[in-house]
Design a protein around this nucleic acid. Sequence first.
DNA 1: CGAGGGATTGAAGAATGTCAATTCGTGTGG
DNA 2: CCACACGAATTGACATTCTTCAATCCCTCG
Lengths: 248, 248
Amino acid sequence: MLKQDLSKKYEVKCQSCSISRLCLPVMLAETDIEHLDAIVQRSRPLRKSELLFSDGEKFENVYAIRSGSLKSYTISEDGIEQITGFHLPGEIVGLDAINSGSHPSFAKALETSAICAIPFDKLEELARSMPGLQQQLFKVMSQEIREDQELMMLLNKKAADERLAAFIINLSQRFGRRGLSSSQFRLTMTRSDIGNYLGLAVETVSRLFTKFQQNELIDVNDKEVSISDAEALSSLAGTRCHFVQGEK
Amino acid sequence: MLKQDLSKKYEVKCQSCSISRLCLPVMLAETDIEHLDAIVQRSRPLRKSELLFSDGEKFENVYAIRSGSLKSYTISEDGIEQITGFHLPGEIVGLDAINSGSHPSFAKALETSAICAIPFDKLEELARSMPGLQQQLFKVMSQEIREDQELMMLLNKKAADERLAAFIINLSQRFGRRGLSSSQFRLTMTRSDIGNYLGLAVETVSRLFTKFQQNELIDVNDKEVSISDAEALSSLAGTRCHFVQGEK
DNA sequence: CGAGGGATTGAAGAATGTCAATTCGTGTGG
DNA sequence: CCACACGAATTGACATTCTTCAATCCCTCG
C-alpha cells in the first residue's frame, strides 16, 4: 500500500505538485513550468536515515523536497556534527554547494521523503531564458541568507527557552503554510537533533519541553506537539511572526 | 590629500580595480566587464559610522566594497543589535534583501570606505546574457550560505577562546587574499562589535585578547594585532584553514 | 520478551555573563 | 594648549545559566 502511494507520487509533475507554489515554479507561466518540469528528475523516495548527499560529493543537483523532511548538517574535523537546518516540502537543499562545486554538508532523511533532483547546470541555463526562474533562484538563496541571520540572533542573543520557543513557532508556521495544522504536528527530528541545531544539550531541550508543558504553552507527547498558547509562545520567542520568511 | 586620493579612486573602473579578481568580475571576459562597469555607480565614500543602508529601506542595489570595511547587523524588536558580518574589499553586501524587496538589515562603515552601488534589476538582466556573471552571483550567494553554516558551528559548538581564535584566523586569511599582511593588521571594529558577532560579552573578548597575548599567540595593542603563533592559533580555532571559503 | 536508542530527571560543576571600578585614548571646547 | 568628557578597553568579584555526569524510564523493533 505504501509502495503504491509512493509510486504514484513518483510521477507527480511540477504542474500538479501540491507544493509547487512554495517551490521553484512560483510565479512561472504554465509553459515555463513545463520546461522546468522537463529537467526535474524524480527517483525512488528516500527512507528514514538515508542520505541524499554527503560532504565531499560532487555537486550536480539541487534538490526540492516533495514530501517528508530532511536535516542537513556538517561534520567538523574533530568529528562534531552541526545541524544547519531542517527542511520541509517545497524547500530547496544543496545550494551551499554551488560555490565550491562539491557538497560541503550532508543531507539525511528524517522520514520517508520524496525528492526532486534538479541538475544545476540545466537549471542555470533555463534561468537565463526564464527571468522568473532566475529571480526565484536568487530569492530562495537570499531567503536562506536572511534566515541564517535570524538564526544568528537566536543563537547569540537568546536564552535556551527563547530558542526553543522560536524553533517551535517557526516549525508551526512552516507547517501552516504547507496546508497542515500549525497548532498540532509531529516532530520528525529527535530531541538531540533539536539541541544540536539550537546549540543546547539534549537534557536542556527535554527539560524545556517539560517546562513548556507545565506552563501550559504546549502539549507534548514524545514527538507529538500541540500548541496550547500560541500567543505566549510567540512572545517568548521574541521575534513574533517576524521569524516567518519568504512569503510575499 | 585624503580628498584627492578619494576623488581619484572615485573613478576607478572595474577593469582597473585592484580587487576585481575577488569581486563580481571574476572570470568575466574583458568586454563583459565593460558591460558590468557600465551599470556600476560610484559615489562619495562613506565615512566612519555612516550607513550604507538601513533596515526597511527599499532594495535597489547590491553593494561591492572597493576599500575600507563595513559591518552589517540586524536589530530585533526588543532593540538588541546582532552583527551578522564584517565586510572587506571585494565582498558584496545587500544580498539578504533580494527576497523581500527591502533591506532586512543595516550596513555601516567601520572606517572611510569606497563603495560601488550596483542596481540589482540591471544586474539580473545582465546576468541573463552573461553566463559567467550569473554563475558568479550564484557562487557569491552560495558562499555566504556556506559561511553562515561555518559560523553556526562556531557559535553552537565552540568555546569562547576557540571562537575568537577562529575569528582572528578568518580575518587574517581574508586580509592575506587581498594582498595585505595576514600576520599583522588593524581591527576596524570595536571589542564590543567582536563580542556581539561572536556571541560573547565584551569583557570576555577583552580577557581573551589578554590571554592570547600572555600565551604568545598574538601581540595586541588596542586595535593593532600581529599574529605570533599562527600554527597554535589555527589549531585553537579548530577548523584550521577550513575556515577560509570561496577560493577555488 | 529482550535490547537499545531516545527521553527524562536530578545533582553538581564550569564557563561565561553581569556588575562595578578603573584606566586609557581621543576629540572637543574653553 | 590644556582640561574635560565620553566612549572603549581592561580587570576583578560574583552570579547564573547551562552543561556534564549519572541513573532511570520508556518505547519501538527485532
